[in-house]
Design a protein around this nucleic acid. Structure first.
Lengths: 275, 275
DNA sequence: AAAAAATGACTGACCAGTCAGTCAGTAACC
DNA sequence: GGTTACTGACTGACTGGTCAGTCATTTTTT
């Protein structure tokens, strides 16, 4: 816990080009940038109604006041959006390289080609940056998952689709790093873990479990699997961890591994099927 | 929360001491407390012949010079060993609660009922403490594992024994936290990850793979499994991660899950026919 | 009393977060 | 089109709290 808001009065700033006090006064009247405000805590607070990745600052887009004049987002706006993205991208690099605690915002700033202060224009603080990063990356996945639960298909097909979805949308993208981040930093960010459980894990598990129960009833799957759907996903998780730590010593073909796992689990039911 | 220290490596530390060369020389002549030295880097350097958890400081024990005098470890010695253990225990608590970077040695000291300086009597620095902690905790396991590879038994039995060993010796002990720590900090401590791979993972995988190959030849197991022995261990890893993050929302019965996994994987061979 | 062990106040690097000041863009007016 | 006024995004030097590591001093052991 360090420096917080403090409301001191005279910070004897000494800018090299000291100017007339007039300017300062004028500025003071205008100031009140109040950055943190725009999008708020999202998930930091008790109410974690995750923010859906919508816009945060530069609130009013095209359709509002100057609609007639400028349909074009105006150079400023688009620049600002790009900045936000640049910061997030840099943050992802740094966080996944060093973890939350060891990441310096100075480094993030450098990587994003931005001044450190700029980060605070877009994110309340380091923690906020971290959480928004995770949320932004996960949001698209969340919507995909809900779809997945609705359909009624053979377990094995479901498993295969999930595996494919996982490999394509997580393992082969930066989301892999995000997932690792959650797995690793989750303890320090209980609401992040909670969010992940609520929006990603629970839905997936519930869907799989429901499907499995039917499958078990039809004799397509073993009852044990319905109790521990985690088993189905386990290789994916292994892969994420493995790739971060041991790929140098022994690379792992995730796709093949997940396929193998499915093959093994459903071998009995699907007949000697295989190939 | 502010400032976290940066993480390991940090070669450019500034050592406040860089005083006049004279003083330095004097110090070198006298001092030489040289704490870290005794057991050294063990794994920090390139040659990681892991230290086996033997003694480190108070080097010469009973059998050497004063053997005739003191067969009894001497109060001092045993006290010092106890201290070391206390510090390690405290460190385990703190590290597994906060991770490497966010752990303060002041807290470790308090928890161990020791002054901060005392820690530096036993460990060269924070990083050293961390690595020795991990090594000490893992060493007993390593010897256990080598035994495991030698014997020639049915895969399923092997799998069951491994699962049991894992649950009893890792999951239900503090080693679970150590494992999490490795997963968590492995990227920042490549030699730690390397050590873990070399001494724990690789032997286990090799043993399992060898055994599986025979089993496959005998028709006791599917060939896919021999390619990805990781699949066998996956639920264990899941359990470790899960218990740290989501146990509050949905507890997980590891033993049952691992048993289920084994059941599922060997179901075909075990009952379907074809012994 | 000497030696070893232990202590904890202290130092200085470090870094999250701040804010006075700058200037590119935009708008308004000629 | 050109000129001027205004806005707010951006900057980066700076602050204050933090903490790894040190060492002169005190305590304990022999």
């Amino acid at each position: 816990m360090a420096s917080r808001r403090r409301t001191p009065s005279a910070p004897q700033r000494r800018k090299p080009s000291d100017e007339a006090p007039v300017a300062a006064a004028a500025k003071a009247a205008v100031k009140v940038r109040d950055n943190g405000g725009p999008k708020g805590r999202s998930l930091t607070s008790g109410r974690p109604s995750f923010p859906a990745s919508g816009e945060r600052k530069t609130a009013a887009p095209d359709a509002s006041n100057s609609a007639s004049r400028k349909l074009v987002p105006s150079r400023r706006k688009s620049r600002s959006v790009a900045r936000r993205q640049a910061i997030l991208a840099a943050a992802l690099d740094e966080f996944s390289q060093s973890g939350f605690a060891a990441t310096r915002l100075d480094d993030v700033a450098v990587r994003a080609s931005v001044a450190k202060g700029t980060i605070y224009l877009y994110f309340r603080d380091k923690e906020s940056l971290f959480q928004e990063l995770v949320l932004d990356m996960l949001a698209p996945l969340v919507s995909r998952i809900q779809v997945l639960g609705a359909i009624e298909i053979p377990v094995r097909v479901l498993a295969e689709r999930m595996a494919e979805l996982f490999v394509r949308e997580v393992y082969e993208t930066r989301r892999k790093d995000v997932m690792r981040l959650i797995l690793l930093e989750g303890r320090r960010f209980p609401n992040l873990a909670e969010f992940y459980y609520r929006e990603v894990l629970a839905p997936v598990l519930t869907a799989v479990r429901a499907n499995l129960k039917c499958a078990v009833a039809r004799g397509e799957a073993a009852p044990g699997l319905a109790r521990f759907p985690q088993i189905l996903v386990a290789p994916g998780l292994i892969a994420v961890i493995w790739s971060g730590l041991f790929d140098a010593y022994e690379p792992l073909d995730v796709r093949a591994m997940m396929e193998t796992q499915i093959e093994l689990l459903f071998a009995r039911a699907g007949e000697g099927g295989a190939t």
